[in-house]
Design a protein around this nucleic acid. Structure first.
Lengths: 112, 112
DNA sequence: GCAAATTGTTTCGCTTCCGTTTCAGTCTGC
DNA sequence: GCAGACTGAAACGGAAGCGAAACAATTTGC
């Protein structure tokens, strides 16, 4: 893959997302979402903050927003009640799945 | 490319952008930026709004933000002074170029 | 048992973004 | 020449983001 092709792919994927009215997530939020769905659980606020090299409130706020969109859910860890475990949701899994399919579809549409 | 690989690539690219402190653009802003740099000029507010299927103020505000970041610049069209022509900048071109290189680099790092 | 450490959230003041509506400036058609 | 159309920006109230600091709740270490 050449950089020009990569950029074109990225553009086409974003354009399709924007046009179909998908939630306008920031880069950080999308990174958090994909990490939750691709990396093995459990996921904690602290762990995500370390993985993304951002502060904890950034994670908390992103979870607020994506929780309202039902893309993720939060549950108190019963073994260590300081922790919050972030879990996947049906809606979130569907969103991520469709997103992945969208990338593949746009990749196939690209000129060679 | 399979969906799981596509998602993993997307995650790795976003993670690298977030970790290195790149500006936290929204999906819409990134779509606008890439369209300006990949599609042939001239670019107008109205044209971009139509291409992304969003309202004009969305474009105006995104240009405000990305203009402050020096990723794009605005110039009044001298032939039709109602129009504003959006132009590329050196900083923006560098940002987009590095972004494209980043995608290719993450693609090469991926497990087969 | 109790100070210290750890976790996630909240608060502060500020900036940015939203959709909708309104506006100023410019062109077009007749 | 002038009404109407068109373009981009500004105004509005509201929502959400930021970094830094302070906070409650919980666990740990001694």
């Amino acid at each position: 893959m050449r950089p020009s092709q990569a950029l074109r792919l990225w553009q086409q994927v974003l354009l399709s997302q924007v046009r179909e009215g998908a939630p306008d997530l920031t880069m950080r939020q999308t990174a958090i979402l994909l990490t939750i769905y691709l990396d093995p659980p459990p996921h904690t606020v602290r762990g995500l903050a370390a993985r993304l090299n951002v502060t904890k409130p950034v994670i908390t706020r992103a979870l607020d927003t994506m929780g309202a969109l039902k893309l993720v859910s939060r549950h108190r860890d019963e073994l260590d009640k300081r922790n919050v475990l972030i879990r996947r949701t049906v809606e979130g899994a569907l969103f991520v799945e469709r997103f992945g399919d969208g990338i593949v579809a746009r990749a196939h549409e690209l000129p060679i």
